[in-house]
Design a protein around this nucleic acid. Structure first.
Lengths: 209, 209
DNA sequence: TGTACATCAGTGAACGCGCGTTCACTGATGTAC
DNA sequence: TGTACATCAGTGAACGCGCGTTCACTGATGTAC
C-alpha cells in the first residue's frame, strides 16, 4: 500500500471538470430546483472551490447556457427516439407530443432552465429551431410526411408552431394538481396527454386518419 | 402658509400602503422584470422603509401572492370582456384565446409571476380554476355554448384543458424572435395568434362553423 | 534520461452587494371618560 | 371640549446569509533541450 493511495480522494487536476460541473448542475437542479442553481452550489456539488468553474466558464450565464444546451440535446434525442418508433406519420405526431411532455415532466427543473435562458435572449437555441435537423424541423417534416401540402409553406409553419406551443403549454400545466382527476379519469398521465392532444389538432383536421 | 405644509411631502401614515405596495410591485415588474421583484425593491418603489411592508404582508411570499392574485383578476376581466364582445360562441373561443395571449404579451413579467407562484404550490388559484365563474369555467361554458355535448363531461374537460394549454403555450412562445417572420407573414401579431389558433382546434372539429 | 521552465487547472481567502427579516423606536390616530 | 392612553403604522439601523467574482497563490503537467 503506497503512500499516495492514502490520499486517493481526488487528484488535484480533475480531468474533465467542465463535464463534471454540468452534471453537478443537473443534480442540483433535480434535488433543489432552479432557484438553488448558483455557481457556488454547483461548485460545492462538484466538490471543488467556488473559483474553479471560472477556468471553464466565463461567468454564471455561460454555465447556465451549457446546462440548457445539454437539455436541448437530451430533448432532441427523446423526440428522435419517439419519431423512430412510430408506425405511421400521423401517429408520429402524437408520439412526438407525448415524448415532449414526458421529457418536461421528468426533468421539470431542467426544462425550466432551458426556456428561462432562451427567454432571457428572446431567442430559441439552434438545436430547437434553426439547425436543419432541429427539433422544430423534426415536427415540420413529420407533418409533411403525414400528408400536409409542402407547397403551403406558411400553413405548415403555422401548424408546426401550433403543435409546438400546444405541447409546451401542456408540459407546463401538467404539474398542477387540478388536473389529477383528469389523469385518473383517463387512466394515467400518458393517457391524459394523448387525450388532450386529441383535442389539440396536432395533426391537421383534413389529414387525421 | 402653515408650517406643516412645508413638510407636505407625504403624511406619516400612508392611507392604503397595501394597495400602494401591490401597485409598486407592478411597476417594478414592468420596468425591471421578475428577477428584480424583491421586497426591498417594492418598498423602495413605494417610497417606504424596508420594514413597512411587514405591517401588511406576513412575508415576501404573501406579497407575491397578492401581486399574482391581482394578475388573475385582471386576466379574468380581459377574458370576460373578450367573451362579451364576440358575436357567436364559436367566435368567442377565438376571442378568448387572442385576449389571453394578448394579456400575457402585454404583461409578461406579471404573467410570469402568476404562474411561478402557482407552480410553487402546484396549485392554480381559485380565480383561474375552482370558482364557479373562474376563467376556466368561462372557457368551458363557451365550448358548451358553441355546441359541445354537455353530457360528455370528460370530453368537455379535456377540450377546455386543451384550449387553455394551447393558449398558454402560445403566450409563452410568442416572445421569441424566431416567430417574427410568421407574424410579418400573417400581417401582425394578433393575426398571427388567430392563425395559430386555427391550427389548434380551439373549437372541436365537429363544431367548427 | 534529466532538468528547467512555461502553462494549465486548481485553492482558499476576501471583496462588496442586495437580500429577507427583526428590533426597539416613534409619530399619528382613535377612543373612553 | 380636553386629556390620558392604547393601538396602529410607520422608521432606520442592524443581523446574518449566500451570492458572483477577483486575486495571489500553488500543485501538476507537458515540452524543449
Amino acid at each position: 500500500m503506497r503512500e499516495s493511495q492514502a490520499a486517493e480522494a481526488r487528484p488535484y487536476h480533475h480531468g474533465d471538470l467542465r463535464r463534471a460541473l454540468i452534471d453537478a448542475a443537473s443534480r442540483v437542479l433535480e434535488s433543489e430546483g432552479p432557484s438553488a442553481l448558483s455557481l457556488r452550489a454547483v461548485a460545492r456539488e462538484a466538490g471543488v472551490s467556488p473559483a474553479a468553474p471560472y477556468h471553464h466558464f466565463k461567468d454564471k450565464t455561460e454555465l447556465l447556457e451549457a446546462v440548457a444546451h445539454e437539455g436541448w440535446t437530451l430533448l432532441d434525442a427523446a423526440l428522435a427516439a419517439a419519431k423512430a418508433k412510430a408506425p405511421s406519420a400521423a401517429e408520429a405526431m402524437n408520439e412526438l407530443g407525448v415524448a415532449y411532455v414526458c421529457f418536461a415532466r421528468e426533468n421539470p427543473a431542467l426544462y425550466r432552465v432551458m426556456y428561462d435562458t432562451a427567454r432571457d435572449r428572446e431567442d430559441l437555441p439552434d438545436e430547437m429551431q434553426g439547425d436543419k435537423d432541429s427539433a422544430y424541423c423534426k415536427v415540420r417534416d413529420t407533418l409533411v410526411d403525414a400528408g400536409a401540402d409542402p407547397t403551403e409553406a406558411l400553413d405548415i409553419e403555422l401548424a408546426t408552431t401550433a403543435a409546438w406551443c400546444s405541447a409546451h403549454g401542456l408540459a407546463e400545466m401538467a404539474g398542477f394538481k387540478q388536473f389529477q382527476h383528469l389523469k385518473d379519469a383517463c387512466g394515467g398521465e400518458r393517457a391524459f396527454f394523448k387525450a388532450v392532444f386529441q383535442h389539440m389538432g396536432l395533426v391537421p383536421k383534413h389529414l387525421a386518419d
